[in-house]
Design a protein around this nucleic acid. Structure first.
Lengths: 216, 216
DNA sequence: CCGGGAATCCACCGAACGGTTGATGCCGCC
DNA sequence: GGCGGCATCAACCGTTCGGTGGATTCCCGG
């Protein structure tokens, strides 16, 4: 199903390297489905142009002088700019990926992405759907997945209740066991997770995937 | 760059609907890069076949009678089966996506995925890289991203320390403020998050993206 | 200019928590 | 058959937490 021409997808390119900007621009010129509105060489300029030019999609590098990509994304969100941001960068480390995603990037592609894939990705992003390079997706999944130092089923059950704000007494009541038992389970949990209070236990449980974002 | 032929990618199909199995199989027969080793109509059978046939990639439905997809994925991981699991299902709700990812699925595609995309996805999965349908990727990102009931910067700072296991006194020391101040901040945090202890605060902060898996 | 939110601080109380030590029964594994 | 892991319970201790009811400063915005 070919995309209907209609209005072309309006693009803004933000990257501090002119050569990269040229390369990206080259991938879209000649294709009537796209229109490159402008280029920015740093984050502040990108925000400025986004406010005046109203692009549909911004192709944004992360590492730029002055206002970097993540700061720019946050600023765009704060200003209520509607444009989708597609991060296009060389790096796929956690330190780059996670902040960008949290800031509100719609997608995250590496610069070794081929032309066809990039074009497809921009179309996807324009629809507001996420696109991730495989290695980035892998990384993201790794964040959610379980490395796990195995808590027993009972311990996990108790940890769930604690995360929901239950006191030891409440846990005891709900599981029909004594408070003393709960306390000993809780202490075991601390030992296994290497923490010494329930707040930290909940935090590391999330980070290790023992508690998940999905099971509130 | 076309894929080199070499050894074909060995596939196993697990779905309880014969028609779906046929459809999937049809997408790969005739292509010498792939070899469909077998089909299973439930999770238990899929695990059994995976152990004997050693597929590279398993295309797995989630909703199946008896052992469902997620259980099968967990079992495969437990048994140390090397195959990559590519979930191929109709549903993209949290209740389906998150458990499958946590269980260890390499990718998650919806059944409306086109033939070409499916073939590409299988190749990607065979390399051990993740593939996600855009709507699934969106969902996953949504989990990581911030909906946010705005905590002040100070409150967030304190919440971070609490998640790391700091007591009020320790927080006070680290921020060079009095314990009383910390306590009042903490109470504000509870109010804003709708909880009444620090463990629950940490949990809901994770779920709302105020604390993230990435910033441990 | 005044209101209000944010950040800072104080004191007090009862309840809950963290830590220790120790004990019992059950089950699976070597 | 014994050893270890898990779940269960007990009593006791000091510490921390949650909750209340204030108070002050600062700064932003109406």
């Amino acid at each position: 199903m070919p995309e209907s021409p209609g209005t072309p997808i309006r693009l803004l390119i933000a990257d501090d390297h002119p050569i990269v900007r040229d390369g990206i621009r080259g991938m879209f010129t000649g294709d009537p489905d796209f229109e490159v509105l402008g280029e920015a060489s740093d984050g502040a300029r990108a925000v400025e142009l986004a406010r005046t030019l109203h692009p549909d999609v911004i192709l944004m590098d992360l590492r730029m002088p002055g206002t970097d990509g993540v700061a720019a994304i946050k600023e765009l969100a704060r200003l209520g700019v509607a444009a989708r941001v597609l991060v296009l960068t060389t790096y796929d480390t956690d330190r780059d990926v996670m902040p960008a995603i949290e800031a509100g990037a719609t997608g995250y592609l590496l610069k070794d992405t081929g032309r066809d894939e990039l074009v497809r990705a921009v179309r996807t992003a324009a629809r507001g759907e996420a696109v991730l390079s495989p290695s980035v997706a892998t990384r993201l999944l790794g964040q959610v997945r379980t490395p796990a130092d195995p808590l027993s089923a009972r311990e996990l059950e108790i940890l769930h209740l604690i995360a929901d704000g239950a006191t030891n007494r409440e846990v005891a009541a709900r599981l029909f066991i004594s408070e003393a038992t709960v306390k000993s389970h809780v202490l075991h949990i601390y030992t296994k997770l290497g923490v010494n209070d329930r707040a930290a236990a909940v935090a590391t449980a999330f980070r290790r995937g023992l508690l998940t974002l999905g099971d509130g």
